[in-house]
Amino acid sequence: MTSTPLSARHVRKRYRDTQALDGLDLEVTTGTVHALLGPNGAGKSTAVNVFATLTRPDAGEVRVGGHDAVRHPARVRSAIGLVGQSAALDEALHGRENLVMFGRLHGLSKTSAVRRAGELLDAFGLAEAGDRKVSGYSGGMRRRLDIAAGLVTRPQLLFLDEPTTGLDPRARHEVWEMVRQVVADGTTVLLTTQYLDEADQLADMVTVLGAGRVIAEGTPSALKSDLGGDRVIITASRPDDLARMTGVLGSAAAVDPDRLEVTVEAGPAGGGAAVVEAVRSLDSAGITVDDVLLRRPTLDEVFLHLTAPEGAAR
């Protein structure tokens, strides 16, 4: 297994007047969840289609599992699994029958397909539902079965295109656990999602796309750190305390009189140290407060900052 199951260099794809991919570079490391983020029209779906050999790029190079996606698409397809936004299941069939069907379509013998179906049903907590029709499955169960179908051939790389869209919070968490299990079992995952908390929970690396190009890349923690440090938000007990608090905490403290809040940037020492210092300083000055909150930048804030329209405040 190559250490880079997916490598893309200067990939371009145009649809009439739309430049969907404009020199895209991407490298995915084995054993990770790599999230691909971006607003609608950023090129996420086009990128997945090109990587999965569903769409031919106009220029550039894509290698999956060490194989050139243009010259050897069949080899690439044997190394990947793809779970699209819509479930590719036959609802008239049982869960087990669906997995056996996918196995047979991928060239497994009947015996191997039945064995693999049983393994996947056990692994995804669907063994008891395996002999029920998929039409009776909940949304989360269908999604888990859909992901299991993408793993029938034990792919090196699994593409998950917005796997939890439309699911309730409990079902989303079930799918998250399945994704973690998939990676623990040795499959690398490229994930596109519209949920920033999903990328924050699952991704080892995040690539943010804009207009078909990479506009930022890094771990979730690194991207959040780049946006700014931790902030300490202190809620005053009385409006009259706000002026005294800013005097103690320094002129750089930001005041929100409507919310009775004073915000202090944590600085290089980090949020924990800043909380301790602020509380000690206020206590020494005889100022009591209602609440102290350590606020870290979120991936949502990073995303909004990076994808703000040209000329908008950042």
Rank of each mutant, 00 (worst) to 15 (best):
G103K: 04
G103V: 05
L105S: 04
L105H: 09
L105R: 04
H106D: 01
L108M: 15
S109C: 00
S109I: 05
S109E: 02
K110N: 01
K110I: 02
K110V: 11
A113C: 08
A113R: 08
V114E: 14
V114S: 13
R115D: 12
R115E: 13
R115S: 13
R116H: 10
R116V: 10
R116N: 09
R116E: 13
A117S: 15
A117M: 12
A117P: 14
E119H: 08
E119P: 02
L120R: 12
L120Q: 11
L120C: 12
L121T: 11
L121W: 07
D122N: 12
D122G: 08
A123V: 08
F124V: 12
F124P: 13
F124G: 11
G125E: 14
L126I: 14
A127H: 13
A127Y: 00
A127L: 11
A127Q: 15
E128P: 04
E128L: 09
A129N: 06
G130H: 06
G130Q: 07
G130W: 06
D131P: 02
R132D: 04
R132V: 04
R132G: 06
K133D: 11
K133Q: 15
V134Y: 10
V134F: 12
S135H: 14
S135Y: 10
G136Y: 12
Y137G: 04
Y137C: 02
Y137H: 08
Y137A: 02
S138K: 05
G139V: 09
G139A: 10
G139T: 13
G140C: 11
M141D: 08
M141F: 10
R142K: 15
R142Y: 09
R142L: 05
R143T: 12
R143F: 09
R143M: 08
R144Y: 11
R144W: 10
L145I: 05
L145N: 04
L145S: 01
L145M: 06
L145F: 07
L145P: 01
L145C: 03
L145R: 05
I147M: 03
I147L: 00
A148P: 11
G150R: 02
G150D: 07
G150W: 05
G150C: 09
V152H: 00
T153F: 00
T153W: 01
T153A: 12
T153M: 02
R154S: 08
R154C: 03
P155Y: 01
Q156W: 00
L158P: 03
L158C: 02
L158Y: 05
F159V: 09
F159A: 03
L160G: 02
L160F: 01
D161N: 03
D161H: 06
D161S: 07
E162G: 08
E162V: 06
E162F: 06
T164Y: 00
